[in-house]
Design a protein around this nucleic acid. Structure first.
Lengths: 224, 224
DNA sequence: GATAAAATTCGACCACGTTCGACTTTTTAT
DNA sequence: ATAAAAAGTCGAACGTGGTCGAATTTTATC
């Protein structure tokens, strides 16, 4: 019976994650102690470190699961034949919602994903890679049906789009964009512009101009 | 004499920063304890918290000073009549060098700037704002001398460029870009494309294609 | 100059994340 | 079946960042 250990181990691991997530959601990440998690999971404090190297890792493990789920849900919701702009918007907004459902969770996750410490690089790249490939597929399909002019470089195109995704999250966390409506409007403009560079058409609009004006004041004003 | 306090206060503050920076550079941020900083600054542990609310804040105060200096140095080095692409590159690379001179410093700083906790928003916006305005000025000058077609929106243009700056740093910390040469080459391509969208011309190249190919493998490959 | 009020300093203290090594349970080898 | 090895468990102990209140120094008032 080689399996007794394996089975227990997975069960314990899951128990830790579940206890942790429940407590994190209740009281926040920083206000939840390792000891409380251990108690809630019915194990000793030190045992946790046999499963996770640090408190943060428990949280990231949970995020990985959540992201799996979110991507699956997205794939179901997304119409692979919709205009490329709409598909990208769906992807970005879904990421936005995930990240902002709990602000603290999202910040920790994004910090680890976008600016990982050297020990977290592999994890970061795995998560980023999934995202990047998601964007790539959308672009590839759009090219396949002629929506994008053929002469674009997939890597740099993805780069631009990924950059906008970072910009969106950063703007949200810095307070430049304050709600989903603003985020959506801003993304629409920026994505359209980026796609124009890639090889779709872009036109300005009216309500958007107003938002831009408003944001301009919020962003460019010097503080002193 | 109302000044005795003020003078001492500034001196102590500076002493803390200097001691902290020296120790951070010697042993790293996390390996340096508050008590060690206090000892090195010749004061008690608790006193530090009269000047800074958290360990991290000591470091950020130092960064602000450094950034002042870096921007001043940049303004001196930068040729305001050079092609817009070169000016942007100078700015981005200077940021890159600052941030990567000490990897750990840079990561902490960028995390605080790009994804601030709510208490750090003001600080984040102040630092970001400086950067954003720097980009804006470069664009404005370029437009003034006709290098950019007049019909671009300054805010979204800055958005795209700022996004690329985030992308660059994230790619470096995730290990996708591994040295300054790669960063420079990649930035050149992406900036040129972004500027084309804004209203300059862009053409591909040869050596760049090779790098892109190489990066594509590094970035898009699925891990399993 | 004396005294009250306010600001500042300090290290003992607290709670926490992480490490350690003694102990228990499971696996492997004979 | 049994012993040795390996893997896993545990809470005491350690070092840390941050708090607190008593003590000290500076400022304000007369």
């Amino acid at each position: 019976m080689r399996g007794i250990r394996e089975a227990k181990k997975q069960a314990t691991r899951q128990a830790i994650i579940e206890a942790a997530v429940r407590l994190f959601a209740e009281k926040g990440f920083e206000k939840t102690s390792i000891e409380q998690i251990a108690r809630a999971a019915g194990i000793g404090k030190g045992t946790i470190y046999g499963y996770f190297r640090a408190k943060e890792e428990i949280f990231l493990a949970f995020c990985e699961d959540e992201i799996d789920y979110a991507f699956a849900a997205l794939a179901e919701k997304n119409d692979p034949e919709a205009p490329v702009l709409e598909q990208l918007l769906t992807l970005f907004i879904s990421q936005f919602r995930f990240v902002t459902r709990n602000q603290e969770f999202g910040r920790l996750l994004m910090r680890e994903m976008a600016l990982p410490r050297s020990t977290g690089r592999a994890q970061s790249r795995e998560l980023n890679g999934r995202y990047v490939r998601g964007v790539g597929e959308i672009l590839e399909r759009a090219r396949g049906r002629g929506e994008l002019s053929g002469c674009f470089d997939p890597l740099t195109a993805i780069g631009h789009l990924y950059a906008l995704h970072l910009l969106m999250l950063s703007s949200w966390y810095s307070g430049y964009l304050q709600n989903e409506a603003e985020v959506t409007a801003m993304l629409r403009v920026l994505l359209r512009q980026a796609l124009a560079g890639i090889g779709a058409e872009a036109e300005p609009s009216r309500a958007e101009r107003e938002l831009l004006q408003q944001l301009q004041e919020r962003t460019l004003a010097a503080e002193h």
